[in-house]
Simulated assay, not measured.
Amino acid sequence: MMDIYIQSEILLRDAQYDTWTWTGPSGPVTCFENAALMGFVHVFDTTDALLASWEERQKLALARHATFLRSAGTKAWNVYSLFLTEDADARRGREIERIEEDFSLTRKIARASIKTVDDVEMALLPLLSIRSKPLLGAANFETRLRARLKEIAPDGVTAFLNDASPAEVARILGAKS
């Protein structure tokens, strides 16, 4: 079983958020903050527990951090509450989606069926900076480069890729034209 708290904290820290754990009366909460926003990650054992107590958990976190929130200035308008569960109850999916439509107190992200690190990342995506994951290995790079340089003589591309001197590459390309 994956630990959603730990995985969310890892992803948030990788995205340059400060994180800390607050152990509230209804269990641990991962708190996070950067220069622009702040929030709370709440994890539930079941979909039913999430639906039954998300509002109360949100209010408890806000009440506990009220002094801090009041001094946060404009950042206080960017407070997020995340409500996550590993449980997958497809019948209750629409109810979980409706949580995000409740615009009172905080912005909300609610997800069920969080079973992998990728699921946690997908849930946190609105909070993470845009990232690109290029899939370029050495062989893949050469194949892609050759495909893009198809108008250039193959011998010239090979010479270039094999670290031939610039004069040699120019000689090959000049001879082919």
Rank of each mutant, 00 (worst) to 15 (best):
M1K: 08
M1Q: 09
Q7E: 09
L12W: 00
A15C: 04
Y17N: 07
W20C: 10
T21S: 07
T23I: 03
P25H: 05
P25R: 08
E33D: 12
E33G: 03
A36G: 14
M38Q: 07
V41Y: 00
V43Q: 01
F44L: 10
F44T: 02
F44A: 07
T47G: 06
A49S: 09
L50N: 02
L51T: 02
E55P: 04
E55A: 12
K59I: 07
A63E: 10
R64T: 06
R70M: 10
A76D: 06
N78T: 08
L82M: 05
F83I: 05
T85C: 10
D89V: 07
R92A: 15
R94N: 13
E100P: 12
D102C: 11
F103R: 09
L105I: 14
R107P: 05
A110M: 06
R111Y: 07
K115N: 14
D118L: 02
L125W: 03
L125E: 04
P126H: 07
L128R: 01
S129G: 13
G137W: 04
F141M: 14
F141C: 13
T143L: 14
T143P: 06
L145F: 15
K150R: 08
P154H: 06
G156W: 03
L161T: 14
N162Q: 15
D163A: 11
A164C: 15
E168Q: 14
V169M: 09
